[in-house]
């Protein structure tokens, strides 16, 4: 089974911020991290990733800089900013709060006492 795209879509930014909060990274590596974090159950193609990078950079949650590779092409690295870290923390809290409620809502059994 694949994870529903609708379910995960709203979390793209948080996923990227989480990965960058553990170290600066570049496009292809972030997409590999996503694949391995999800045990190959989910992948973001690079077009989606670049769009998200540009959005996050514009609102100041990440920054970019060019690496100094001596061999091959130069890589563009992304780095989380303090405002990005705040966003990540807030999103994590929101998720912790929401996930139990949602799980109760979509799988919980309604008992007599609940019908007030």
């Amino acid at each position: 089974m694949d994870i529903s795209k609708d379910l995960i879509r709203g979390h793209t930014d948080t996923i990227i911020l989480n990965i960058l909060s553990q170290g600066d990274s570049y496009g292809y590596q972030v997409s590999k991290s996503i694949r391995s974090l999800s045990d190959n159950q989910y992948s973001l193609n690079e077009a989606t990733l670049y769009t998200a990078f540009r959005r996050l950079e514009k609102i100041g949650e990440i920054e970019s800089y060019w690496g100094d590779e001596t061999q091959g092409a130069r890589r563009k690295y992304y780095k989380i900013t303090s405002s990005g870290r705040q966003h990540l923390e807030a999103a994590l809290n929101e998720w912790q709060f929401a996930k139990n409620i949602i799980s109760h809502l979509i799988s919980g059994e309604v008992t007599e006492g609940d019908n007030l």
Binding site: Y28, Y50, A73
Partner: peptide, 14 residues
Amino acid sequence: TEFKEELVADLLEA
């Protein structure tokens, strides 16, 4: 132009 450079590095590794 910057985006193209970024893609070159990523595509090479891919």
